[in-house]
Nucleic acid binder design. Structure first.
Lengths: 329, 329
DNA sequence: CGCACACCTGAGAGCGCTACCACCACAAGC
DNA sequence: GCTTGTGGTGGTAGCGCTCTCAGGTGTGCG
């Protein structure tokens, strides 16, 4: 019923208890190779009885596998690791990894210096890397050992599969909603300029403005609420007749609404504001935020799964984004 | 400058390159035992040149150390893992663990069945556990192998150190603010009933109400926005003259404000609403949320550090919580 | 009857590392 | 001279597991 000693059971203990060799026990536990039903039953029973859990370190050592999945986040400085978005990615990945006996580590990957991935390549403890907000130089410098064990949330490359929300589709849905509700002077507060994947929504914005014959009004943001507030004010200063702001993130939108309210500008009365992400607080903000969904957890889980499985996956997986029309636009 | 082969360098490679034995190289790298300055220099140089990174699996195997820190979250069901609060804990822990070559895994620890920790005790891959929202039965069933390698965010026990925000102090600061601004019919929406640590703020509420001779109006919540909205409405139904609601979390407060607004009740005009946590969105909500700080990341980082170091720490570490007075109360 | 070909099993090497132990050189003390 | 350190070093046994390889026991077939 319980382990005789304080020491956790090893495969040897299980084999002895089941009356088979370590090899056979290993085969049964790992589910590889041949094993008679009888042996299978006895080993299974012994493992249960002793509460046997394989030692992932030993397993990783002999298989050369690694025990750690690294979430590598690029950005200006290590402060990007303090982002709620990054937290959600890490949380979702940590949940996926747990049953595999794999842990998740969070590191900042500087934009300069493509050698950062090299260190992770040398570290045999690393079984895979999920890149977040990365850039092409990084994608092009994947060490040989990590080939096929890297996924990217955002842009990808021929060798690194990409997982992301359909930025263009989501932006398009929001912008059309803005247009359909009569807005004609629509400005956009973007994500950081260096972030290529954020460019998709900007492209959708430009395309729609052009096809509708409307002016393009772009202000660079960084996904943060603080920057969103400043960007909204800047927008109204440069183009006072703006009647709608599309923010690249909900945080930005919330910051914009707050700043606008501080200036006595009504939302959505004077200016409609829409975001992107549909964070949990979007539904209970005042006014309730109109936005497009961004299934961060599902994206992160898919990226982690791809790395863990090491299977071939399509080069690009885009998760659909749908409009959530509430009150702010 | 670079590894000659595609295979990452091993300690043997370093030793050979430095012209010393593997033992000496190990001593220098691990920083244990004697080593002459000359040997130290040569090994260090060789390690740099080869880009040597120790294999954490091998190290863990021989030291019997474990490579994974498990964040074990208790709650009604596995859905608690989807909480932004949990995400922040995991993010902060993952950041602390990365330099140690340790990964973080996220698991749900059912409230029933104290044997859940037993499995983690049998798993030699687990180097420590951080309990979140746990209960006494779990704390009293720590397996021998994990003794001294468990920390709790929330309540602790004689053997498991506790790290938490000063719930009582934070609640007290918010409630006094409510009282000082003239509110006299103050209701509270609590956290889940089974969560003992949440009881501290309830105790502070009861104490203040009693000493001020005010009526106690308690409604049970669960920290969520949805429940917060329903709880606020319930409060106003049961006690229509309520002029302030203290919510045990910002999400709850935001939900309450949203629901109140839906009923045409003005915040803070008719009812003041205050939260607890000071989440990033509290500053940009409408009205800006009055709340008390809750340094989740610092708490999680401290808990992870304690587990990683394995050093003795004080049984209780309470992080101060301060009032952030904004518009909602 | 022998031979191929399943299916199944156990011995044993070895993944990369640390830690124990034996050893060596040299200095100090009787 | 011999002992007793003291600082430094290398040999080597394993940590717990997987996986290859050499067998060993059946069945079907020429």
């Amino acid at each position: 019923m319980s382990t005789p000693t304080a020491r956790p059971a090893t495969l040897d203990d299980v084999a002895r208890a089941a009356g088979v060799s370590r090899s056979t026990a290993s085969r049964v536990i790992a589910g590889t190779g041949f094993a008679s039903p009888a042996a299978r039953d006895r080993v299974g029973a012994a493992a249960d009885r002793l509460g046997y859990v394989p030692n992932p370190a030993a397993r990783a050592l002999v298989r050369g596998a690694g025990v750690r999945l690294v979430i590598a986040v690029s950005g200006e400085d290590a402060g990007v690791l303090d982002d709620p978005y990054v937290d959600r990615v890490v949380g979702a990945a940590a949940r996926i990894c747990a049953p595999h006996g794999v842990g998740v580590a969070l590191e900042w990957l500087p934009l300069r210096g493509p050698n950062a991935l090299r260190r992770l390549g040398e570290d045999r403890g690393v079984c895979g890397v999920v890149l977040v907000n990365t850039t092409h130089p990084v994608l092009d410098a994947v060490p040989a050992r990590l080939r096929g064990r890297v996924a990217s949330i955002g842009i990808g490359s021929p060798t690194v599969p990409s997982f992301d929300v359909d930025n263009g589709g989501g932006a398009d849905a929001v912008l059309r909603h803005l247009y359909d509700s009569g807005r004609r002077r629509i400005a956009m507060v973007t994500g950081p300029r260096w972030l290529t994947c954020a460019g998709r929504s900007v492209a959708a914005y430009r395309a729609l403005m052009r096809s509708a014959g409307l002016p393009v009004r772009l202000v660079t943001g960084d996904f943060s609420a603080a920057r969103g507030g400043r960007a909204a004010l800047e927008t109204l200063t440069r183009w006072p007749d703006t009647d709608a702001i599309f923010a690249a993130s909900d945080a930005t939108a919330l910051g914009a609404i707050s700043a606008l309210r501080g200036r006595g500008i009504r939302v959505p009365g004077d200016v409609a504001v829409a975001g992107f992400d549909d964070i949990p607080y979007a539904a209970v903000s005042t006014p309730a935020l109109t936005t497009a969904t961004h299934p961060v957890r599902r994206i992160a889980a898919a990226a982690a799964t791809a790395v863990l499985d090491g299977r071939r996956v399509p080069p690009v997986t885009a998760f659909p984004s749908t409009l959530v029309a509430r009150e702010s636009a």
